[in-house]
Design a protein around this nucleic acid. Structure first.
Lengths: 205, 205
DNA sequence: AAGCCTATTGGACCGGTGGACAGGGTGGGC
DNA sequence: GCCCACCCTGTCCACCGGTCCAATAGGCTT
């Protein structure tokens, strides 16, 4: 018989899970025997905890359950080695499906996520990035690029303004345009989007 | 009963496959009814053919079989939407495993490929290389580190608070402590400090 | 000439951010 | 017991960051 172990912060979904797997064990902490499937339902998702759980139970498929599935969380989960990701309120039938898939060596993600992951993986491994080298820098005008690079080095708007000899207001304007073009919401995400940019030589030690 | 359709250039493995699935149908071309699983064993792998087959049988999981599995082929296959990839001489037991996984919504790739694909997908989607131990990070307490990492991913204080299940105020506290310890003035420079080590912070002077 | 893109700046608004006060709680070392 | 490090929370406030409303001016294509 397949042993299912659910790790949950609180036990409130125990009944639901046990209707999918009558012999399911629900606990708040890892421990005890070695299950055949580990269902990780602790919220919020803590990377460190999950990672150590996966490492501890090496070989046991881990499925992450979330009360409100987020793609980003799912990506983190599979990056850490999880074999599945689905809604913690999924129907018992769905949970059984997932269990079957992962215990037979599969990865279960749900249709949308699956296609996203597959697309990303193939892009990465086949080396055909859609916007290959620059995920954005050449979308920007020269001025926008200059401002973006200043900001990406950690400058405040005021500092960037001084270095480029323009008004802080203008910096904001260019920066706003850059946000728009790169589809990010703030300077920090701009930096993350531009993270490949090598640090200026004249500022490196 | 699950219907298995094998598409093969030549029929020589028919016996093996039928020992896994007694009612398996082996053909050289697509056609006839709609199977529950489509096993694609045509060699060499033709992207166009496979693609159109997957499109034609939309919704039917497709598993690509190869007499000599190559990672690149596997990547192409899943890029086109295949749900599995394995050796065409796999044991009947293995084939049954694969069938179970894919018919339950899973992706089946084999351990090595799976980890490769997962790694690639997460790198691509999260834009991160697997844990390159940041030197500054161990100056921080576990909680400060967790907050710092959330922020380093582009989260706002509010988002970090939600993800770590603490108040925004507490996020600020940990973050402030992290700024102090790392000698930076704001979240953006924190990210830079965690990503590239040798950046001089004071180009404002 | 008209239209568009780029660069530049202004003012105003408001939410996010970071620092400066405050505490409260736990657990471990001396 | 006391001290200390860590974790968590609160209020207040100045500043920064991002976006809205503009406007002016040069260069470029049509």
């Amino acid at each position: 018989m397949t042993k299912h172990l659910f790790i949950s912060s609180k036990g409130q979904l125990q009944a639901r899970w046990q209707s999918a797997f009558p012999d399911a064990v629900v606990r708040t902490e890892l421990g005890g025997g070695r299950p055949d499937v580990l269902w990780w339902a602790r919220v919020p998702l803590n990377s460190a905890e999950l990672s150590s759980a996966i490492a501890t139970l090496s070989g046991v498929p881990v499925v992450v359950l979330s009360p409100e599935p987020v793609q980003e969380d799912a990506m983190h989960a599979i990056a850490l080695g999880a074999r599945g990701y689905c809604h913690s309120h999924a129907t018992p039938a769905m949970l059984q499906q997932v269990a079957v898939a992962v215990t037979h060596g599969g990865l279960w993600l749900g249709p949308e996520l699956m296609s996203r992951v597959m697309g990303a993986a193939s892009e990465r491994l086949l080396g055909e990035h859609p916007a290959e080298a620059d995920p954005g820098l050449d979308l920007l005008t020269p001025r926008e690029r200059a401002v973006a690079l200043e900001v990406a080095r950690g400058a405040t708007n005021k500092e960037a303004a001084r270095r480029l000899d323009i008004t802080e207001r203008t910096v904001k304007a260019h920066l706003g345009a850059a946000f728009e073009k790169l589809g990010v919401r703030d300077r920090l995400q701009l930096v993350l989007a531009l993270k490949y940019v090598p640090v200026d030589i004249d500022h490196a030690a």
